[in-house]
Amino acid sequence: MTTTSSAHLAGPSSPGRLPDTNGRHGASDDAEYTFWREHTTIALQPVAAPSILGLFGFAVSTFMVAANLAGWFGNDTSTPLVLFPFAFAFGGIAQLLAAMWSYRARDGLATGIHGAWGSFWIGYGIYTLLVGLNVVPGTATSPDAKVAFGFWFIGLAAVTWTGFVAALAENIATSLVLLTLAAGSTLLAIGMTAALPVLVTIGAIVLVASAVLAWYTASAMVLAGSTGRNVLPMGQRGAPAMPGTSPRRPIEYAAGQPGVKIGQ
Rank of each mutant, 00 (worst) to 15 (best):
N75S: 13
A209W: 14
R24P: 05
N230L: 06
L130F: 14
L156D: 07
P15V: 11
R37V: 09
T180G: 02
L96S: 10
P247G: 01
L97H: 12
N22H: 15
A254S: 10
A70I: 08
F151I: 02
R17C: 01
I190F: 15
L181F: 15
G23R: 12
I251Y: 05
M64E: 02
T111Y: 15
F151M: 13
I251R: 11
L178I: 00
D144G: 13
A27M: 10
I205K: 10
A220R: 13
V177H: 01
G23L: 03
S28A: 10
N22W: 14
D107C: 00
D76K: 11
H8G: 05
R17A: 01
M234I: 00
V198E: 14
A49V: 03
T217S: 04
R229P: 05
K261Y: 12
T111G: 05
G163D: 02
F73Y: 15
F164L: 03
R24Y: 13
M234P: 04
V206W: 05
A140W: 13
T79G: 01
A66S: 15
L96A: 12
F149T: 00
A189G: 10
I122L: 09
G155K: 12
F88K: 08
P19N: 03
S102F: 03
G138T: 12
P243V: 00
I251A: 06
W72Y: 13
N22C: 05
F120G: 00
Q257Y: 14
S119C: 12
L53W: 13
Q45L: 04
D20C: 03
F164N: 04
V136R: 08
F56R: 09
W117K: 09
T160Y: 11
I122Q: 07
P50T: 02
A166D: 00
A89H: 09
G184K: 07
S13I: 10
S246P: 08
G238H: 07
V47M: 10
I113Q: 04
P233Q: 06
N22K: 14
A66D: 08
T160G: 06
Q257G: 05
V47C: 07
A183P: 07
F120N: 02
A66W: 03
P243A: 02
W101A: 00
Q257M: 04
F153P: 09
L133V: 10
G203H: 11
F151E: 06
G238N: 04
A67G: 09
G108D: 03
F149Q: 04
T139L: 08
H114N: 09
R237V: 03
L168Y: 05
F35Y: 15
A254H: 14
P12H: 11
T180K: 05
S142H: 09
D107P: 03
A43T: 15
A194D: 11
A169R: 15
T62D: 07
N22D: 06
A94M: 06
S219F: 12
P137D: 03
A43Y: 09
W36C: 01
